[in-house]
Design a protein around this nucleic acid. Structure first.
Lengths: 224, 224
DNA sequence: ATATTTGTTAAAAATCTGTTAATGTTCTCA
DNA sequence: TGAGAACATTAACAGATTTTTAACAAATAT
C-alpha cells in the first residue's frame, strides 16, 4: 500500500489529515518541520509527499528542492494558504506536482493523491488468484472457492494464507509470519496465529493434497 | 536487500561503517543523533538498527526503548565502548538483541547482522540443497531425502548437519560446534550433542560413503 | 590399567502446537 | 446509540515433539 510523507506544522491539521489518509488505506508518516521531513524522506521509501508550504526551519519549497535533488521525479503535493499567491505555485501546474489550497476537503486530497499514484504506477492492483489444488483462493476478495461452494475469509485469514501460498513448499518461520502479520512476535500473538492455522486447515480439508505442515520449533509450510 | 538504520555520532566512524555495510550489500541510512534516528526509524521500513550507546540528545538505550515500544521485536545491535560496564548491556544477552564493543572489526559486525537477520527470516536462508552422497539435504525445509524416502529433521539436527556439511572433510572442534549451536560449552551440552551425532549417523547410514568421524578429544568431521 | 572421552539407548523434562471455547473488541445497521 | 454480528485474542487443556539427562557400554589416550 502506498506510503505518504506528510509534513505539516499545525498539529491538529496534521493529525486530521493523517487519520483520514490512513482510513483511506495509506501508510502515513507525519513530521512537523522541514528538517525532520527531510530526515524521514531519506530514511523511508515513500511514494509521495504532502508538504505544507509554510513550515518552520525549512519551508515546503526548500524541502521539495532537497527531495528533488535526490529523486527528481518524486511526486509532491503542496498545501498552500488560500491567499498565497506565490509564483512558485504557478509553476506547479506545469510539472509533475500538484497543490491544494487550505482549507480543502479530504476527499479532494485523496482523489489527487490517487490520481498521481496512478499516473506514476504506484498503485499496484494485485489481483492474484491462486490455485490451491481443487481450491481457488481469491486473495483480493478474500474468498476461498471449492467447486461450487465459496468460503469467505477474514482479513487475517487471508493474509496468512497469502503469505503461505506465496512461499509454498518453503518453511516460513513463526517469527517471520508473526512480524509480517501481527507486527510483533510474542507468546500471545503466536497462540493467536495457531488458531488461525487451525482454521485454515479446516477450510482446506476438502483437498488432502494440500496441507499446512508444522515444523516444530521453526514454523509452517504449505505443501501442495 | 536488508535495510539498516545506523545511528552513530562520530562522523568518521559513521561513514566507515556505512561504507563497509554498503559494500557488503546492505542499504544503510545514517543519522548522527538519537532524535534523528527515531524520526528515521518511524519513517523507514528497516530490518535492523545499529545504535551507538553514547549519543547526543537521546542515547542508544533510550532510543531502543522508543523503537521497542513501537515494535517490540525489532532487532538492534548496540555499539558500546570497551570499558562500558552497564547493566543494561548484560540484559542484552538474554533478549533478541546483541552488542559489540568498540573497537570492533567490520567482519564481526557483519556476521552478527547476518546472524540476526537470518534468525528473523529477513535474509533468504541460503537455500542451498546440499548433496550428500545419495542423500539430498534440504536445509531450508529441514529434510533429508534418500531416494524416495524423506526424513524430516528437527531444528537442532538440521543445524548440526548444516555446520558439518559446510565444513565437510574438516574437523570442527566440539567447542565450536557447541558454541555455535548451544551457545555455550559445558559437560551436559556436550553429551547432548553426542546424542545428536548418534542420530545423524543413523539417518545417514544408508550411504556408507558418508560418515561422521570423531577425532578423539577434538571434535567431529563429516567425511564424504 | 585407569581416567577420560565417546557411543548408545531409554526415560524424564521442557517446549511447542492443536483445538475448542470463552472473552474482548470493533464494526454495522437499525 | 446501542444491540447484535463479525472478528480477533486469550485461556485452558490435551497431545505431540524435541531436547536433555541419566546410565551404562565401548573406545581411546596416557
Amino acid at each position: 500500500m502506498a506510503k505518504i510523507l506528510l509534513v505539516e506544522d499545525d498539529e491538529n491539521l496534521g493529525f486530521v489529515i493523517k487519520d483520514n489518509l490512513e482510513e483511506a488505506g495509506f501508510v502515513v508518516v507525519l513530521q512537523n518541520d522541514g528538517n525532520k521531513g527531510l530526515i524521514a524522506f531519506e530514511a523511508g521509501t515513500f511514494d509521495i509527499a504532502i508538504l505544507d508550504v509554510m513550515l518552520p526551519e525549512l519551508d515546503g519549497f526548500a524541502l521539495s528542492e532537497k527531495i528533488k535533488s535526490q529523486n527528481n521525479d518524486f511526486p509532491i503535493i503542496f498545501l498552500t494558504a488560500k491567499s498565497l499567491n506565490d509564483d512558485r505555485i504557478k509553476g506547479l501546474k506545469l510539472g509533475a506536482d500538484d497543490y491544494i489550497s487550505k482549507p480543502f476537503n479530504m476527499e479532494e486530497l485523496i482523489l489527487r493523491i490517487e490520481a498521481i499514484l496512478k499516473r506514476v504506477g504506484k498503485i499496484a492492483i494485485t489481483t492474484a488468484n491462486f490455485i490451491l489444488g481443487k481450491y481457488t483462493f481469491d486473495s483480493k476478495n478474500l474468498k476461498l472457492i471449492f467447486e461450487t461452494t465459496e468460503q469467505s475469509l477474514t482479513n487475517k485469514e487471508s493474509e496468512l494464507l497469502k503469505l503461505l501460498v506465496e512461499n509454498k513448499n518453503q518453511t516460513i518461520s513463526r517469527e517471520r509470519l508473526l512480524i509480517a502479520l501481527w507486527g510483533n512476535n510474542d507468546y500471545f500473538k503466536g497462540r493467536s496465529m495457531d488458531v488461525f492455522i487451525t482454521r485454515l486447515r479446516k477450510y482446506l480439508s476438502n483437498d488432502t493434497s494440500i496441507k499446512i505442515t508444522n515444523v516444530h520449533g521453526v514454523g509452517f509450510r504449505l505443501e501442495m
